[in-house]
């Protein structure tokens, strides 16, 4: 299993724990007299992007058919860039989205824009790196 796959898988496992912990926080909000807006969207994306999609990306990089003998998994650089962009972008969202809702400011607005672009670029790099590996032989 390549190193970047191990990082993807371990990060996805951490995001699973984080997403479920956030679900606990959501459930406890009323009891603790809290009301943090934007948590539902963050929870869904920690789960579906951080856990599900990240697991697919890591396993896909490892498991899809070889690109070539010389570069069996395509570009390692693109895979690492995809890993960091996805994780930093998603964590940035998890912080910026509730903060933007509670205390609107240009800083959190731009952080959310950066988060959107980073996650989008991570996905584009994954597709770019995977496309040619999806083949019959």
């Amino acid at each position: 299993m390549p190193a970047v796959t191990r990082w993807f898988i371990r990060a996805s496992l951490l995001f699973l724990i984080l997403a479920l912990a956030l679900a606990v926080l959501q459930a406890a909000q009323a009891r603790w007299g809290l009301s943090v807006p934007g948590l539902s969207a963050v929870y869904f994306h920690l789960f579906l992007v951080g856990w599900v999609t990240q697991m697919i990306m890591g396993v896909g990089f490892w498991f899809f058919p070889k690109y070539s003998q010389a570069r069996p998994r395509g570009s390692e650089t693109a895979a690492w860039a995809s890993f960091w962009l996805l994780n930093v972008g998603l964590l940035l969202r998890a912080v910026a989205e509730p903060l933007l809702a509670v205390r609107p400011s240009a800083l959190w607005g731009w952080a959310l824009v950066a988060s959107a672009l980073m996650q989008w670029l991570a996905g584009v790099l994954f597709v770019y790196n995977s496309w040619a590996r999806i083949k019959e032989r």
Binding site: W108, V113, S115, W120, W131
Partner: peptide
């Protein structure tokens, strides 16, 4: 699936940017 992924994340990125501006 990869094409739907590209389209889906593109719409998602636009919606997230739309929340900020």
């Amino acid at each position: 699936a990869l094409l739907y992924f590209l389209l889906g994340i593109s719409f998602g990125a636009l919606l997230l940017i739309h929340k900020a501006m």
